[in-house]
Design a protein around this nucleic acid. Sequence first.
DNA 1: AAATAATGTTAGGCGAATCTAACAAATATT
DNA 2: AATATTTGTTAGATTCGCCTAACATTATTT
Lengths: 232, 232
Amino acid sequence: MLSFTEENYLKALLRLTIEKGNKDGAGTNELAEHLNLKPATANDMLKKLKEKKLVDYEKYGKSTLTKDGKRLAIDVVRKHRLWETFLFEKLAFEWDEVHEVAEQLEHIQSRKLVDKLDEFLGYPGFDPHGDVIPNARGEMLARLTKTLHEEEVGHECIMVGVKDNSAAFLQYVNQVGLKINDHIRVLSKQPYDDLLEIEANGKKSNVSPRFSENIVITCPDCERKKSKIKTA
Amino acid sequence: MLSFTEENYLKALLRLTIEKGNKDGAGTNELAEHLNLKPATANDMLKKLKEKKLVDYEKYGKSTLTKDGKRLAIDVVRKHRLWETFLFEKLAFEWDEVHEVAEQLEHIQSRKLVDKLDEFLGYPGFDPHGDVIPNARGEMLARLTKTLHEEEVGHECIMVGVKDNSAAFLQYVNQVGLKINDHIRVLSKQPYDDLLEIEANGKKSNVSPRFSENIVITCPDCERKKSKIKTA
DNA sequence: AAATAATGTTAGGCGAATCTAACAAATATT
DNA sequence: AATATTTGTTAGATTCGCCTAACATTATTT
């Protein structure tokens, strides 16, 4: 049985490797930074997790999850995203409020609870932020996406997520009037400063590159990638 | 912000005082026993909680919750019982499975979550075990009880206690296969001698009036007493 | 290549929550 | 009242997760 703390380290390592494409692994300082801890603390934990065969760690090297570690990390992510979905869909939480509570709920230990919750929610594929929810076997089906910033002028796309999950950004997104699953049309793009003019929900807005780079979109004709991020 | 551990101590003290009618307070050993800890451990925590003004503790004396401590303890109980209700009603958990998971869920910190959950469940008054769920203001409405002997034929009720606490009677109750919180259905009543045919735990029994008059029950449709167990 | 900067490690310490073992006080028994 | 039993307390140790400060290694820059 893992402690909350250990689970958080595994989750952070998953973020820092798989999700951020940092394929060679995460550095000790980088990991500590991500968890708001001091490097010395992360160092201790890496040794402990290596002992438990959940992390591959070598002195002065980058750390990665072992197969077992990765499976456990994915389970935590699965729980986190299912709870976010529950809070948003069933309890009418705001988009930017779900994360904080899910950070707590993700550590509840009960296989049955997770599976029942998944069923109750209708086996959702994506959480309220558009992130993929791993299934019960730990598989994460990838969705073909790009950022709004990369969409071509004249095209219409669907907002499926955000890259920046900070409350500040999420509230800004609300303010602009965008939400998950909105259809967005790119009306024009200023060649000089990449400012986008977009239309969504019948409303036109101008958004900065800084903004559009943090909006994840997909297009109706986009195929779903069949390739799974393998758990092994 | 209290730790899980501190919350568990407060909850145990509530159990041992209010709920068990142990009005003068709980002893250190008794408390330790209830939490499966050693007396020395409970002793340390009592001093700590006294420092935080959540418990009235004096050396070699019985301990009780302060007003603040009681309020916090009731909030934990409220969360526990709301989660039990959620698991039972929404996720189709079995009656005897909910407690363990609720022991974890009760420590999630989010006022909004509790209130939204309460609303989602339709402001339930009782949990799946028939225990009262404190409301958002920390008030616990007492439940209306009667004896099994007074229950109508065809109705189902919940056993909440006994009137006769003698060993002989309790052993008899055991022998019949009844225990606190069991759901009992009254199948028939002989008009001549008031002998009841009941069913509980899938097992049928015939019990005398002498017996049924000593079993305290409540029913889901029973009116709620307006009298509150005051939190102050 | 040497100096500097960035990154990672070790050693020692701290608070929380637990334990055991020894002791002290209160209660019950003879 | 003296003794025994139960109950409660204290002292000291342990594990976990965190820290700071000093040191070591690796990477970068000049």
